[in-house]
């Protein structure tokens, strides 16, 4: 079996592409297009003067975001939808990031502390474990405390190690 076969695709404007597919592909089957409204949230960050803004794209239920907090930043921000802006087929829902009264980071810290107590292990003991056991255990601790890595498990482990070191 060939490692790969290739499919050629041509658009009406003359654009042509080639895409690799499985080597055991026999024939074309069908083509269909899905039209559906999709929502993507874009959380934008200030960075030092001269740097481009930071941004993360959120695709998990973007209209249902409740609050955000930059760890080590200015505390909780609650989202209040203020306006919509339409430009052709694009519709933006704009939010104000209002200062919240809670302490999101503090809540996470407390959850982590509680799970540590339940598991009967200290932050120091956990951090002293050798890899890969350490990351695995920290991941389990985080999940039990209801905090997950949004983009990568490495982000979660990094955040948790920082948090655990402060306990």
């Amino acid at each position: 079996m060939a490692d790969k076969k290739y499919v050629l695709i041509k658009w009406k404007d003359g654009w042509q592409e080639v895409i690799g597919v499985e080597g055991d592909t026999i024939d074309l089957n069908k083509y269909f297009v899905i039209e559906r409204v999709e929502y993507y949230g874009r959380l934008v960050f200030d960075r030092p003067k001269g740097e481009y803004p930071g941004m993360v794209v959120l695709d998990r239920a973007p209209l249902e975001l409740e609050k955000v907090a930059l760890v080590g930043g200015d505390g909780d921000k609650v989202l209040k939808q203020t306006s919509t802006y339409r430009e052709g087929p694009r519709l933006e829902y704009n939010y104000e990031l209002e200062k919240g009264s809670g302490n999101f980071y503090g809540e996470v810290v407390e959850s982590v502390k509680k799970v540590l107590v339940d598991k009967g292990i200290s932050a120091k003991e956990l951090l002293a474990k050798a890899e890969p056991e350490r990351s695995k255990e920290i991941g389990k601790l985080a999940r039990a405390a209801n905090i997950l890595g949004g983009k990568s498990q490495a982000d979660l482990i990094g955040f948790m190690e920082e948090l655990l070191r402060k306990l």
Binding site: D59, R60, A61, R143, L148, S152, Q153
Partner: peptide, 16 residues
């Protein structure tokens, strides 16, 4: 699917 498998992968630490 993106929501379902997104949540699952995050919960088992396999975001990739």
């Amino acid at each position: 699917n993106p929501r379902m498998f997104g949540d699952i992968a995050k919960m088992v630490g396999k975001q990739e």
